[in-house]
Amino acid sequence: MMSDETPPRDGTPSSPDKGAATRRRVLALGAVSAGAVVSIRPALAQTAGSVLNCEIPVPDITRSGQYIDASGNVVAPGTKGAFPPPGRPFKGEDVKRALAGAQLPGTTPDSNRAYVAYIRRLQRGQGGFTCFASLQMPRG
């Protein structure tokens, strides 16, 4: 069943009773590859300050000064094998490139991997989560 209040029949260009008595139009049901329905989505990236202008603190302010271990956990300062926090939050576009394999500015390959692991684990409500989630946009 069609859900309520969807497009009424009027105004549809190809309504059958257009008097095309003799020549009937072919309706290509199978031919459409790209899909016959495109939905308009909010163009968030169009807002003035583009989303990539956001930043991600590692770790967030409530745990500043803590170290980050190789798998991205926040651990006590000086923990063996863990890395000191980077001096400044990372810019959105730097993180986007790092997620695609590049290296975060001012990091070594190992500390870079640790910081990216921390960013991947960000939970909602933690500083930087929204910036990180928006870097996954646009989806699909």
Binding site: P7, S14, V38
Partner: peptide, 16 residues
């Protein structure tokens, strides 16, 4: 939504 054929013909034929 932006509909190309056959989508809007299908919707038109279904009605409610």
């Amino acid at each position: 939504h932006l509909l190309v054929s056959p989508a809007h013909e299908i919707l038109a034929a279904m009605g409610e």
